[in-house]
């Protein structure tokens, strides 16, 4: 996994081997260990989303649960 995820070493592509601008562009834009980079940040963003989404919907779940329990208690 390590080898496949590593960006190419610039030294391997220097000196008389033509232009490798495409590879250099890839090297400049893609973070090191992209799999772990994206997984880490998707996890953090997912948590932020859950706080708002589950926070909002969960509040309504609690209200519904209390309403049902209240009617059970009275009934």
């Amino acid at each position: 996994m390590q080898g496949s995820n590593c960006p190419p070493n610039p030294e391997e592509f220097s000196g008389g081997r033509g232009s490798f601008d495409g590879i250099r562009l890839h090297e400049n834009t893609m973070p090191k260990q992209p799999f772990w980079f994206f997984l880490t940040w998707i996890s953090i963003l997912w948590y932020a989303y859950l706080v708002f989404h589950v926070g909002w919907k969960g509040f309504h779940d609690i209200r519904r649960m209390i309403r049902d329990l209240e009617s059970d208690r009275k009934g």
């Binding site: 589950v54 919907k57 969960g58 309504h60 779940d61 519904r64 649960m65 049902d68």
Partner: peptide
């Protein structure tokens, strides 16, 4: 088991 009244989002939390 909370009277089995738990819904999805409360369950996730």
């Amino acid at each position: 088991v909370a009277g089995r009244e738990m819904d999805v989002h409360l369950g996730i939390a």
